[in-house]
Design a protein around this nucleic acid. Structure first.
Lengths: 185, 185
DNA sequence: GAATTCATGTAACTTGTTACATGATTTA
DNA sequence: TAAATCATGTAACAAGTTACATGAATTC
């Protein structure tokens, strides 16, 4: 349901093709909502059948044709209804934590390696969010100041989450490997 | 894959039935890994077919029979392999954030209501985690001190996450409703 | 007497993932 | 010349959700 609504949301901002919707997801809500190309096409087809969106074929001379989707009135109504509807419950799935709970017998160096890889990936993610804030692309795409402010807040949410994770890792390392496991960390 | 491994992990701690596995998920990793009853039975059946677990029927006199599952050697090996394997990537799906991004035109009071409901649910969750730490059930179930320490850390992760969310909400409210939307908040 | 808990499960459905196929254009 | 990008999609599969069915025992 959320995926569907997000597609409507993006098309409301700016009608576009399935292919580029994928890019938009990645470039803006990717940190808290992941999608695959197949999902997008499937949902787009369903929305089209239900007349929530209409497609216009645009000839790309040389390049492949694009099917540009736009909301219909019914589509706009569905989006508005979703915005006011109660939230679907947040259900985290955190593979590191899950593994962690069963890992008491894993030798310290191996556990440390798992934590380190996660830490490295967090730092990459955080740098990306920082870049997004600095790039200020947001301010050119947003339709008004309020919208821009909200997009900034959503990125700041991602940054705060990264920081919390990193702090937890630090604390966890201290608790589990009080002497350190190897030179350098 | 993670679900499967977690089932193996729980059965390794203590052989038990599908029904009570569900309870154990909820009572320990529920904050970062949600499951349904159907998923558990389905996976348990698959694991049985693959000889990773064996079931023993225990007659419950009066009460329904239970099928108590225990790991086989192959099951233990799969668990150990998973513990050392690279993590599946973390993919958040955060319905509030997603909605937030498209909600610039939602009237302040309605948006505030969405945020408030989320805030309330976070406070419930946080209280539950606190309770879990205070209850110290952990220390009786853990097989050793290291394991207990790791379980405590996993709950502390949940608490830290709640706190970060609550702080973000506060900040967001301040940014979006500088004068407040109604008495009391 | 009604609802909840214990305990098993099935069926149907929705959502998410992976792999593949096509074919032109641009970049390395 | 090989790889990446643009752009469409399909098929098969895996994972997650919802609703239902059964039936005894216990608690309200």
């Amino acid at each position: 349901m959320s995926l569907r609504a997000a597609i409507l949301g993006f098309l409301d901002l700016d009608p576009t093709s399935g292919y580029s919707l994928k890019q938009r997801f990645e470039g803006s809500v990717g940190s808290f909502w992941s999608v695959t190309q197949s999902q997008i096409y499937r949902e787009l087809h369903a929305l089209e059948r239900e007349k929530k969106v209409v497609a216009k074929r645009e000839a790309g001379d040389g390049a492949p044709d694009r099917k540009v989707y736009a909301l219909t009135k019914a589509g706009r109504e569905e989006l508005q209804a979703w915005l006011r509807a109660p939230l679907e419950p947040l259900q985290l799935r955190h593979p590191l934590l899950l593994k962690f709970v069963f890992a008491a017998d894993v030798p310290p160096e191996e556990l440390d390696a798992v934590l380190s890889r996660y830490e490295a990936s967090l730092e990459v993610t955080r740098a990306e969010y920082r870049g997004r804030l600095l790039a200020k692309e947001i301010f050119s795409l947003a339709r008004n100041k309020r919208e821009a402010a909200m997009w900034v807040l959503s990125i700041e949410h991602g940054l705060a989450w990264c920081d919390t994770e990193l702090e937890w890792l630090k604390k966890t390392r201290k608790a589990l490997f009080p002497g350190g496991t190897r030179a350098g960390r």
